[in-house]
Design a protein around this nucleic acid. Sequence first.
DNA 1: TTGTTATTTAGGGAAATACCAAAATAAGTC
DNA 2: GACTTATTTTGGTATTTCCCTAAATAACAA
Lengths: 91, 91
Amino acid sequence: MSDVFDALAHPVRRKVLKLLRKRPMSAGELADKFDLAKPTLSGHFAVLKAADLVTTERQGTTIIYHVNMSVLEEATSALMDLAGMGKEKTS
Amino acid sequence: MSDVFDALAHPVRRKVLKLLRKRPMSAGELADKFDLAKPTLSGHFAVLKAADLVTTERQGTTIIYHVNMSVLEEATSALMDLAGMGKEKTS
DNA sequence: TTGTTATTTAGGGAAATACCAAAATAAGTC
DNA sequence: GACTTATTTTGGTATTTCCCTAAATAACAA
C-alpha cells in the first residue's frame, strides 16, 4: 500500500491516472499531454506500474496503458479508513 | 493538495495520523510509539503541519498535536474523485 | 539564575527522486 | 537486411528526503 501512496504523491502521476480513467492511452499519447521528456514520463509510468495502479498491453509497436481501478479503489478505502469515514465499528 | 499527498506518502506520517485520530497526543508521546529519534519525528510533524493535516496547541512545556479531520476528508474526496467513486455527474 | 523537561532547529551524510540527452530495444514495413 | 516508429533503459546531474547527533529554544520550578 505504501507503493500506492508513493505513486499518488506526484502530481504528474495523479494526472496520468485521471487521463487514463477516461480511456486507455498509449505512452506517447500520454506523454504529449505533458511538457516533459518521454523518458521522464516513462519513469513515472514505471512507478505507477510497480504500484499496480496501471497495466499495459502491447499493440504492435505501441504500448497501451490502462488504469487499474480496483487498486485505486483500495487506496481510497485505505484513506477513508484513516479518515474514519464509513465502514466503522461503533464498538 | 499536493502537499497533502506528499505528507501521506510516508508510512510513519500515516501512522501518526492514525494515532491522532483516537486522541490528541503530545510530540513526545507520539515519538515514543516509533523507533526513531525525536528530531526525526519532529520533522515528520512539520510535514504534516505544513499540509495542514495537524494543528498544535501548547500546554506549558508540551505541545499537543491534533489531527485536522477536515483536511483528511478533503484528501479522501480528492482520491475518490480520481477513482470516480461517488459524486459523479452521469452526464 | 540555575536546572529540568519537552520540543525544535541546525548541520551533515546517505539514499532516493526527478529530470534530461543519448543509446538500446521491440515491432513492423520496404 | 535496412529503415521507421514507439517506447524503454542507461548514465549523468541536481534536488529532495530521511535519518542521525548536537545545539538551541521555551516554559516552568527551585
